[in-house]
Design a protein around this nucleic acid. Sequence first.
DNA 1: CGAGGCCTTGACCGCGGTCAATGCCCGTGG
DNA 2: CCACGGGCATTGACCGCGGTCAAGGCCTCG
Lengths: 189, 189
Amino acid sequence: MFELLQEYFAQRTNIDEASFEHICSYFKPLKAKKNEILQMKGERSKYYYFVNKGCIRLFTVNEDGEEATRYFAFEGAFGGSLPSLIRQSPAFEFVQAIEPSELMAISRDDFFHLVDTVPAVAKIYRLILEAAFITAQERIYGFQNLTALEKLRWLLNYQPRILSRLSGRMVASFLGVTPYTLSRLKAEL
Amino acid sequence: MFELLQEYFAQRTNIDEASFEHICSYFKPLKAKKNEILQMKGERSKYYYFVNKGCIRLFTVNEDGEEATRYFAFEGAFGGSLPSLIRQSPAFEFVQAIEPSELMAISRDDFFHLVDTVPAVAKIYRLILEAAFITAQERIYGFQNLTALEKLRWLLNYQPRILSRLSGRMVASFLGVTPYTLSRLKAEL
DNA sequence: CGAGGCCTTGACCGCGGTCAATGCCCGTGG
DNA sequence: CCACGGGCATTGACCGCGGTCAAGGCCTCG
């Protein structure tokens, strides 16, 4: 149950057994069906999720109904609407399971309580923020002034798993191109 | 000299006088000319900057010589290549003063030393990371699937100061459009 | 006063979006 | 077990947004 989470902490901190079990007591297991929405846009985000199995994505929908995906969390990663969790403001994005998934949920308040009281969690949170920021920053540079083909090549270099594992629709909404264009480009790779 | 920095800390923490003076002792004043490069792409970033006067920007240059700007820091804000500072890796971006500027520089090692030893700085660092991440995330969503005109309107809402204060070239490289297109769009606002 | 940078505007064109048609895969129910 | 239907990938035809290139005017600074 907690193996992946333990690995996650072990690789990033030197946490003792007791602290880790204390942390685990705050997480609740949760199964999500394919396409199940865990968090609506506009709602205040209540939970942060750790993925044991499957995949969740963060995306928004604009007024024309187009989806824009920002992030996929696979096994062994945290996922959730961090901006909403941080600011306790209405989320600007949806959280959705895009495969049948097994998740561990921790409430917003419990998470930040742990951040404030358990040094190992404070460190994890700092690492999460640093990595999230760096990823976002790479993506801004990676997409600015790039053609659709160049973005596809970028994805092939930086996050090939997204290409190989997920549907074209998902990839397209991540790259910011239409599925039509993506299909053509994959042909000429 | 340290008024703006003091304000910065006072608004975000309840720091005592002694700690603040301790912090100040690590910052060195620095004047930068217009267009002066403070940090080259490819170099390991050594300093984090606080802007007392003027403006600095973070940008990269792709193989075709096109500039893509990610961030502008005005008076009262920190600026620097955070990813390089965090990872101690070669920077993927330039840091440049785009106005005659007065800066306070703190070395990478001193900064993280303060983060690890002074709780108020640890808190500031966490706030900086949270804000940087949220800004980056808003920008990803703000730009994905938007036309050039919509991006310009977005800038007008979220960061009007960039539009009013900086040259068209700077705005264009921030929005990821050509100065030509920007000029046309401003006409039809 | 001259030079260089920047903004603007016009003409042209190519990338990628839109729409429609087709085929494939797979889950569901008769 | 097969028939049907819905979702997704692919492909073709069309076109509009925004990039490119060239020219002209203005402002700043040496």
